[in-house]
Amino acid sequence: MSENGAAVLDVKDLRTVFETGQGAIHAVNSVSFDLKPGELLGVVGESGSGKSVTMMSLIGLLGTTAAIVEGAHVNFDGMDLLKVSEDDLRAVRGAGIGFVFQDPMTSLNPVFTVGFQLMEPLRNHMGMSKAAARSRAVELLELVGIADAEKRLSDYPHQFSGGMRQRVMIAMALSCDPKVLIADEPTTALDVTIQAQILELMKELRRKLGMAIVWITHDLGVIAGIADRVMVMYGGQIVELAPVIQLFENPQHPYTRALLQTVPSVRGSRTERLRVIEGQPPILFSPPQKCSYSARCNHAFDRCLSADPKRIRIADGHDVACFWDPETGGPRDE
């Protein structure tokens, strides 16, 4: 996957296992992808498909007690994030890689002012003085479109609305000029009109700052509007990865195809009945021995039950992990 040497983030064969009372849960199974400078990579999948866990594993946010993270390498900025010390990782988090979480209320500390929380990474990571950090914080709040920035620094999170809090979170993630921004469902908790504001803001920030972004979401509409490439996850694996237009025009994996058909739209023709994907997403108590989608797949045949499909390249930058070929309607010849 890493034919492009210039990738800012290069992940190879990442695996995450959680030790639970009921046994080991294999949440991420051999995930490999890369992120090019300045691109926006969309990650879609249902809850439990491993999209958040993948990203959190990369930067060691899962803690070491219950989660075991292994892999070939996670290359970022000349380091392998799987091998570096906790202190180095700490320096990367926030400074090299910014993170925006889904719920802006629970990820801001309610007992500190927004200004304090914005200045904290600036002083810790960038070694700024208090005054310098303060003026940078004002600059950041203005950047994300918060009016009266100077005054709002002394406000507490509860004094901001949901959309404004998410802007603060984005400002915080951007504070140390990260090379990579990981946004984990940043608009899911927001209303559509506020979501539209945040999407517009992100597009603008990308033009201005040019960092690479990983955008995790389950909303294909959001992805269609902002992503350059899309990675579809299922059962802790990447089942399809393609440039955005190609993914929507020529989806290969049965799961991607079904996902695209289940979403109703507010425009265009209206279907009488919604297409459904029967069944439930799997919980993997062992590394996949068969295709994890086979139980819900309409096209599954015997090979899908005996082997786990590897990702194969079908076009430039487009790969899919499936034995079935939508073109012929039969098995894919390799």
């Binding site: 539209a196 999407l199 992805i223 509007g225 237009i245 929507f248 695209l260």
Partner: peptide
Amino acid sequence: SAVPEPDPVREAERKHIIL
């Protein structure tokens, strides 16, 4: 207008009303 369109081509052409 704020609801994103699950189609990258049409989405790019659409004009949004941002409140």
